[in-house]
């Protein structure tokens, strides 16, 4: 287990450095890395490294970890391998909250209103889903998620269509597929505190999730406060996914792919899966963000495209497996 965490951590570190070295400016690696630490940050190379590439790489780590962790926690708590923020509409609802905060001008007036509104959007959708599908099977969860996702996406598109800004309409794509292009430290500072708070809540759910594998009654008899666990899940997922979506748009499938790939390696223990999925999510989003920059450097290919190419086949495979089991 330790080895797995170390391995994942090393791959995150490696991809992070690689992410700093890829960009249209074509700065040589030694010069690029030394520009990160030396000088007063005023020369063009230092500006590119510190103000453009560094925040992008940091955001990839934060967003990936948030999504991976949230996916693992949701799958554990709902005991359903298809639960994932993107699939069940949490990301779309967070995007709606963020778009509302931006278009009403609230985000510019009140500090932290942007991640706050996204958190609220995400929390509402998790709560709705929880109430709708309590004790129900996979099918209801997915159907409910599809409905919430469609509704939130439609409202997001509506709000953007009503915006006085002529560019806002084109943002629909960003909010549905996500991108890290040209994000700055402003976005890092906006999202990081909320995301970190969400992580803390989610990481503490571990023991409760382990007990829950035995069923709700067994977990309750073991002294797990199920209401507290659900509250923690809602708040933790809402904070991490909300803040991540507020700055990077809705990036799907990370929370689905990563826990699935790592589940066997951690012995299917939900508590162990949490940290591993956070690291795995960070590595996956870093790699995907590298891929969009290497494949189509000029086009700002959306992250969601790469993730869906990886995630959708897996999703179909899981559904098939689910059906053959039942």
């Amino acid at each position: 287990m330790k080895a797995l965490h170390i391995g994942l951590g090393l791959s995150v570190a490696g991809l992070f450095v690689l992410s700093l070295l890829v960009g249209p400016a074509g700065i040589a690696a030694p010069e690029a890395l030394s520009a990160l630490v030396r000088g007063d940050g005023q020369t063009p190379v230092e500006l590119v490294m510190r103000e453009i590439r560094l925040p992008r790489a940091i955001l990839a780590v934060l967003v990936g970890a948030s999504l991976g962790l949230s996916g693992a926690a949701m799958q554990g708590a709902l005991r359903n391998p298809l639960a994932e923020p993107g699939v069940i509409g949490v990301s779309a609802s967070a995007a709606l909250g963020a778009v509302l905060a931006l278009q009403t001008g609230l985000a510019a007036l009140v500090p932290m209103a942007l991640p706050g509104a996204a958190l609220l959007g995400a929390a509402v959708s998790v709560l709705m889903l929880h109430l709708l599908t309590r004790g129900a099977g996979t099918l209801e969860l997915i159907l409910g998620g599809v409905a919430i996702s469609a509704l939130a996406s439609a409202l997001t598109a509506l709000v953007l269509n009503l915006s006085p800004n002529p560019f806002a309409v084109h943002e629909i794509l960003f909010w549905m597929l996500g991108s890290l292009a040209d994000r700055s430290f402003v976005h890092v500072w906006t999202a990081a505190p909320v995301m970190l708070a969400g992580w803390l809540v989610l990481l503490r759910l571990g023991p409760g999730l382990d007990a829950l594998t035995l069923g709700e009654d067994a977990a309750a008899s073991m002294g797990v406060d199920l209401r507290r666990l659900r509250l923690g899940l809602v708040l933790g997922v809402a904070a991490s996914v909300g803040a991540a979506t507020a700055v990077a748009g809705a990036i799907g499938f990370v929370g689905l792919v990563v826990p699935h790939m790592l589940r066997r390696a951690v012995g299917a223990r939900p508590s162990a899966l949490l940290l591993a999925s956070a690291l795995g999510g960070a590595a996956l989003v870093l790699a995907a963000d590298l891929a969009v920059r290497v494949i189509l450097p000029e086009r700002d290919l959306k992250l969601g495209v790469v993730m869906a190419l990886l995630g959708a086949p897996l999703f179909l495979h899981l559904i098939r497996k689910n059906r053959s089991l039942s």
Binding site: G23, P24, A25, P44, V45, L47, V48, E51, I52, R53, L102, Q103, G105, A107, A108, S163, P164, N165, P166, F167, A168, H170, E171, F174, D182, S184, P297, E298, D300
Partner: peptide
Amino acid sequence: GFLPLELLVMADPDLLVLARANPGAARAED
């Protein structure tokens, strides 16, 4: 065409003529 921010910063022009942002938010104008 679309000029990556990195290339603009590296070129460091003597004068940068920026478009004025429209009302309402747009990520395009960030």
